[in-house]
């Protein structure tokens, strides 16, 4: 197993797990979204890392170049980034609405308020 040769995968996996951990471990709704963003970033790396060839260029046919990087993963990840931004924006918008409705963005406080409401109503 070539550890150094595959280092981009190690970074990918580290970012993936770190992001996921934040999503699970944090109670703050905004921090969760940050974790989610980090988690998604790992995917970008997975695709880009695989598509990149060191020394390769964009696929512009020219006698000057002989190695090309695969452009498709880049295109795909552009799309994925857009999706990621949209998700983050929507997530934050919902958090704003949650704060308006509950006056808090801490998950445990919100659930506590729901419980009190249940007991009262």
């Amino acid at each position: 197993m070539n550890l150094t040769g595959n280092y981009s995968y190690w970074v990918t996996i580290f970012i993936m797990i770190a992001g996921l951990y934040i999503v699970i471990a944090r109670g703050n709704l905004v921090k969760k979204l940050i974790g989610l963003g980090i988690f998604q970033t790992s995917v970008y790396l997975l695709y880009i890392g695989a598509g990149k060839i060191i020394g390769g260029t964009a696929p512009i046919l020219s006698p000057a170049f002989s190695t090309y990087s695969n452009p498709l993963p880049h295109v795909l990840i552009l799309t994925a980034i857009v999706v990621g931004v949209a998700t983050l924006a929507l997530g934050l918008a919902i958090v704003v609405r949650i704060r308006e409705a509950y006056d808090s963005i801490e998950e445990d406080e919100i659930l506590e308020k729901d419980r009190i409401e249940d007991a009262g109503g």
């Binding site: 996921l20 709704l29 988690f39 998700t87 997530g91 609405r97």
Partner: peptide
């Protein structure tokens, strides 16, 4: 519904 949507968003994105 807001919290439900938020939770679904997080899990759905994962």
């Amino acid at each position: 519904g807001l919290l439900a949507a938020y939770q679904y968003l997080v899990l759905g994105t994962i």
